[in-house]
Design a protein around this nucleic acid. Structure first.
Lengths: 218, 218
DNA sequence: TTGTTGATTTCGCAA
DNA sequence: TTGCGAAGTCAACAA
């Protein structure tokens, strides 16, 4: 990794055209050739950048970074404050927890949150237009398709609607009910779901995680 | 801006839980207190970070970054290779070009691309569920709602469908036709649009930008 | 390779 | 301030 503090202007031409006037900035060149232009604020997103795979060609006061898609990042350096390199090695990477997949796991073994006597048919129930997160049967034995999101927005309701429309064409399954389950559900999504006869369920992630389901105790 | 090269492990607890095993990494502390943990690869996205506003408290070998939402980033440093600071000043920022807004501007003054004798009603035509990009009338005087995207995907067709459904309830407007306009339109979006009676129009950004419309010549 | 979905998304605009 | 749509989104995963 190479770190350069320099006064520079930057021009990007690719998926769009963008220009950065001259200013003091941090330039990062990673081992894979990717280049990041950072200012002293904003978020983790660089002001400008080139993603790998790409190639950096360098001449005095002028860097040119190109990828095979024809996008170019041209950096003009007028003053270099520092220019250092360090060998970091390969990073062991990140471990995450708490995503949508986890909500699905948890709900699949806690179907009583939806209703007493409900039975799981299967997770990731396949359809021609994508898998339904959870397919189950209610206490009356009727099919219920459950769509799970971390945040429930209008798109998720549309998605579930498409599943239900398709599934209800199958006389062996119909009637298929719908449940839209999420940690939080936006009012607009809730309204649309109500309009389509889809039940909304708010999931409490902390509470669900705290429960140890019976069938995994041993 | 402060740049630290150090062997460290990182733990984030907040919207999710994540852990980084010990390795040599770049730590960036920006002027606003935000912290970025970068490895020597991947994309422009850090392995881990804390966005501003947040506060860094430091003791030997142990950094703790917290924000007011209660999220914490704990960094344990076992070996510091370098630790430098530099004053960058405020960045003048980025100028962009070529976005959806520009397509909308251009199409609004080049409605002849859609049909002869078409007239603009208004851009950002308001509805209860959001603004229609362009509302106009065709040569027969019928209403046409135009949805503009840079890349036309299925979501955009769904969005336009919702607008049309709503607008067609107004007897003063109905019948309202739909046009889905984009620089490129995915086959799936095209199929869905056809199914809903929505016309697809591919926009040539370069050509549209080259035209100087009559009413702005003087 | 291509498409789809999620993201500690971030960012910008408008109500 | 909040909410919503776009992003040079990126990145993981399935088909």
């Amino acid at each position: 990794m190479r770190l350069v503090i320099a006064r520079c202007s930057v021009d990007y031409v690719g998926r769009l055209t963008a220009h950065l006037p001259e200013a003091l900035r941090l330039l990062i060149v990673k081992a894979d050739g990717s280049v990041l232009v950072h200012s002293d604020g904003g978020s983790y997103k660089p002001l400008n950048w080139m993603s790998p795979p790409c190639r950096l060609t360098e001449e005095p006061g002028k860097w040119s970074v190109t990828n095979k898609g024809g996008e170019t990042l041209a950096i003009t350096l007028t003053e270099v404050i520092s220019d250092t390199s360090v060998e970091l090695g390969i990073d062991p990477g990140l471990k995450k927890d708490g995503v949508e997949a986890h909500l699905q796991e948890l709900l699949a073994v806690q179907l009583d949150l939806l209703g007493d006597g409900w039975r799981l048919v299967r997770r990731e129930y396949p359809t021609p237009i994508g898998p339904v997160d959870i397919m189950c049967r209610n206490e009356a034995g009727e099919s219920v398709a459950v769509e799970i999101k971390r945040r429930g927005e209008i798109d998720g309701v549309e998605q579930l609607t498409r599943y239900l429309e398709l599934l209800n064409r199958d006389p062996l399954l119909a009637p298929v009910h719908g449940i839209f389950a999420a940690q939080e559900i936006k009012p607009q999504a809730r309204t649309l779901a109500a309009d389509r006869g889809i039940r909304c369920v708010t999931l409490n992630y902390e509470a669900m995680r705290g429960v140890i389901p019976e069938n995994t105790l041993f």
